[in-house]
């Protein structure tokens, strides 16, 4: 017989076709268009694309020397880090509690479901809600704080740099911890129960199981959470944009890079070119940081996994061969 095992590699390509086709049809043109207009001077109602007269990279230079954009990038980092750390910590703790079979919590299922609810409302509604709660000079929070004697005069929360930032950080945290928790729980539930049983047999306690079974085995999902949160966080737009009428008022306090980009491209004179250039800069920043996260979290396990897969394939082919041989003998 000439057949030497079957190569399944082609199915890798076949199963990827729908993704690739959909990407080519719907995303390739917009992406290339964006990439290209970054080098032009397109704005307003122009349709013709001309390379920027002041040089191919003029928009990029403009962006990198623009204080507001730079501040915007810094603000984005600040807002993201400040909400991500408490968010993932709480999500991890909750996920550990909710997946711990031994912990008899009343209404576990109810809590799991309810914590995701803030993510169901649109960002626009959330923004309206919080700005009503913190209205100045008369609003529920101001009324309460005065009643309790915390402050003497009403406080204009959205006219103060840090209170505005804190509110945005809190809202982001509140909207997303439930989401993160569900993602982590789904990762933990994906762990084979045999691993926990084995740990039980070895006499591991809850914390040990969490540290030595749960965490390592949810590493891939943790990586997913890190990367998507990084991307989402550095593109943070909705809440900072909606909560103070789109200007990051008091100016710059919550003007994230995306808010800046949006205001460039979609308001005023529609500077599509600078908006595109800023987007590309953000893309590079996100790409570099993601690569770092990948590098830090990619450990030998994955490399080992690859070896295992290879070995398994090999063993499988061997098996096939043997079967064939056996067949031959029998036949």
């Amino acid at each position: 017989m000439k057949r030497k095992g079957v190569s399944y590699a082609k199915y890798g390509y076949i199963f990827s076709i729908p993704f690739v086709v959909a990407f080519l049809l719907f995303q390739l043109y917009p992406i290339f268009y964006t990439l290209f207009i970054g080098f032009t001077n397109l704005k307003g109602f122009d349709t013709a694309l001309h390379i920027h007269p002041k040089g191919l990279f003029y928009n990029f230079k403009w962006a990198l020397t623009n204080d507001t954009f730079i501040t915007g990038v810094k603000t984005t980092f600040l807002l993201w880090i400040c909400n991500f750390i408490p968010q993932i910590s709480l999500a991890l703790i909750l996920a550990a509690w909710f997946t711990n079979e031994r912990m008899k919590l009343f209404g576990k299922g109810f809590f799991k479901v309810v914590f995701y609810l803030p993510n169901i409302i649109t960002a626009a509604s959330v923004a309206v809600l919080f700005s009503s709660l913190f209205y100045y000079p008369v609003g529920p929070v101001n009324d309460l704080l005065q009643k309790w004697g915390v402050i003497d005069a009403p406080m204009d929360f959205f006219n103060d740099k840090w209170s505005t930032r804190l509110l945005v950080i809190f809202i982001q945290f509140w909207m997303w911890y439930g989401y993160t928790m569900i993602v982590l729980i789904s990762g933990i539930l994906g762990i084979s129960p045999e691993l926990f049983e084995a740990a039980d047999i070895d006499g591991a306690n809850g914390l040990q199981k969490f540290l030595f079974v749960t965490i390592p085995n949810t590493k891939t999902i943790l990586l997913y959470t890190m990367i998507t949160s990084l991307i989402g966080g550095l593109q943070m737009f909705d809440i900072p944009y909606l909560i103070t009428n789109g200007h990051g008022e008091p100016r710059f306090a919550i003007q994230t890079a995306s808010v800046f980009i949006y205001n460039q491209g979609f308001t005023g004179e529609h500077n599509y070119a600078t908006a595109a250039a800023c987007s590309m800069i953000m893309f590079v920043i996100i790409g570099v940081l993601s690569a770092i996260v990948f590098y830090l979290m990619r450990d030998k396990d994955e490399a080992a996994l690859h070896k295992v897969i290879k070995a398994q394939e090999k063993a499988y082919r061997q098996k096939l061969k043997e079967q064939k041989k056996g067949g031959n003998i029998n036949g």
């Binding site: 403009w62 740099k161 200007h247 100016r251 800046f260 205001n263 308001t267």
Partner: peptide, 30 residues
């Protein structure tokens, strides 16, 4: 925005006007 920041004591008058100019310059390259 800037007038409110000034009257609210967030920044002084000159800074408010400078920030206003900066905001306009950022948004309108022409």
């Amino acid at each position: 925005d800037q007038v409110r920041a000034y009257t609210g004591g967030e920044k002084d008058r000159d800074t408010a006007i400078a920030d206003f100019k900066q905001a306009v310059a950022d948004q309108f390259t022409s």
